[in-house]
Amino acid sequence: MQLDGKTALVTGGAKRVGRVISLTLAEAGANVVINYNNSAEEAEATAAEVEAFGVGALPVAADVGDPVAVEAMVDAAITRFGGIDVLVNNASTFHADPFPTTDLTVWNQAISTLVNGPFNCTNLVAPSMLERGGGAIVSVSDLSAFEAWPGYIGHAVGKSAILAMTRQFALELAPTVRANAVVFGPALRPHDYDDDRYQRTADKTLLDRWGTPEEMAHAVKYLIEADYVTGEYLVIDGGQRFGHRKAEAG
């Protein structure tokens, strides 16, 4: 699929990596619906950056875990742009919680955003894609889909579910719509990483460095354009998942 003249919905598209995905798709000629939950100011700023590429931008608030809010968002997008061709399920939370626990807040939020979110968005956007006779979905996972992370049970289960959903979307919506996942490694420094932790993460990758949001966004763009790739996950992690015994290499 060529992005020029199409319309894309990017969840969590206002800031950080989601913002760069929005801008990358805009640069390729797509109108962008910028979904956000709490980041209204960032969404407005990103919308202005999107419009600078000469395409349309529509910031819309919606908690992706809430089907009523998602339906309203999709309706607004279709009213403005006539339909949706591309969906990027990028919205994510990232909270640690001890396990076992007596407080289900973090678990419920992770499942709501990472499992119900992509389900709701895809479920409600797919009819427009099927009606238009084409569509591409890319959902964002991370390495916790393959390995256990201490304290991140809800997150890891949610990111694993994204791979399962991707396969299901690919099969259920074929041949009209393709669905793929990207699995991000270190892309953008979390707020709570000190220099030492930042460097340790870089050292775990085969390339000895962090990736960039641009590299992540470019992989999303490739999967939107790759007409014979579906049900696939593409890992953008500098080879980190193969670096588990890197200290012994040489």
């Binding site: 490694g185 390339l207 960039t212 590299e215 992989a219 696939e232 593409l234 080879g239 998942r241 193969f242």
Partner: peptide, 10 residues
Amino acid sequence: EAGYITGESL
């Protein structure tokens, strides 16, 4: 732009 993808089988 694909410079952070390595060891992967696509």
